[in-house]
Computed example of a mutant assay.
Amino acid sequence: MMGSPILVTGAAGFIGMHTAERLLDRGETVIGVDNFNDYYDPRLKAARAARLERRPGFRMVRADIADSAAMKALVVDNGVERIVHLAAQAGVRYSIQNPFAYERSNLAGHLSLLEAARHGGVRHLVYASSSSVYGDRPISGDGFKESDPAVAPVSLYAATKRSCELMSQSYAALYGFPQSGLRFFTVYGPWGRPDMAYYSFSRKIAAGEPIEVYGEGRMSRDFTYIDDIVDGIVGVLDHPPAHGAHEIYNIGDNQPVGLMEMISTLEGALGVKAEKIMRPMQPGDVTSTYADIDKLHALTGYRPRYPLKAGLERFVEWWRAFETG
Rank of each mutant, 00 (worst) to 15 (best):
Q97H: 09
S129G: 01
L166Y: 00
G325Q: 10
P241L: 12
I263P: 07
G143Y: 05
A87R: 15
L74C: 10
R43Y: 11
M278I: 06
S220K: 03
K295R: 13
R55I: 14
P210W: 08
L44A: 07
V75N: 02
G10Q: 13
V84Y: 00
S220I: 05
R303G: 15
N98L: 06
A298M: 10
G232S: 02
R162G: 06
D238E: 10
E275G: 12
P307S: 02
S170V: 14
S170K: 15
Q89S: 08
R104I: 15
P280M: 02
P210I: 04
A245P: 12
G120F: 04
P280K: 06
I263M: 02
H239E: 12
R22C: 09
H246V: 15
L296A: 05
T224Y: 11
S140M: 13
Y225T: 04
R203Q: 12
D294H: 15
H297Y: 11
A88D: 00
F36K: 01
M262D: 11
S131Y: 05
K145M: 14
Y225I: 04
L174G: 13
D292W: 13
F144K: 06
I65L: 09
R118D: 11
I139F: 13
D41C: 02
A172V: 08
R54L: 12
S129D: 05
S95V: 04
P280C: 13
A49E: 03
M281C: 08
L114T: 01
A117R: 09
F36L: 03
A321T: 10
G32I: 07
K204C: 00
G208K: 08
M71G: 06
T289P: 10
R26K: 07
E261I: 07
R54F: 05
A63N: 12
G235N: 03
E212T: 03
I211Y: 09
R26L: 07
G235T: 08
R218H: 09
L74Q: 02
T265D: 10
V236W: 01
Q179D: 07
I96A: 15
Y306D: 12
E323L: 07
A50P: 11
M260S: 13
A116T: 00
L111K: 12
A47M: 02
A63T: 08
E81T: 03
F201E: 03
V8G: 02
Y175Q: 10
P283R: 10
A20K: 01
F184R: 11
G215Y: 08
E28S: 09
K72A: 06
G135F: 09
G284P: 02
R203H: 12
Y214K: 12
D195G: 02
Y102F: 03
V154D: 01
N35C: 11
P240G: 00
G79V: 09
D136T: 01
M17H: 15
F100S: 03
Q255K: 00
K204A: 11
V80G: 06
K161D: 06
Q169P: 15
Q89D: 09
Q282N: 06
A101H: 03
F58C: 11
T289K: 13
P241H: 14
A66H: 09
I65K: 02
R118T: 06
P99H: 05
Y127A: 07
T289S: 13
P256S: 11
T224N: 04
V126Y: 11
V286I: 06
S163E: 08
G192V: 04
R104D: 14
Y302H: 08
P56I: 14
G244P: 12
H124P: 02
D231K: 00
V286S: 11
G79R: 07
M71C: 15
L125K: 05
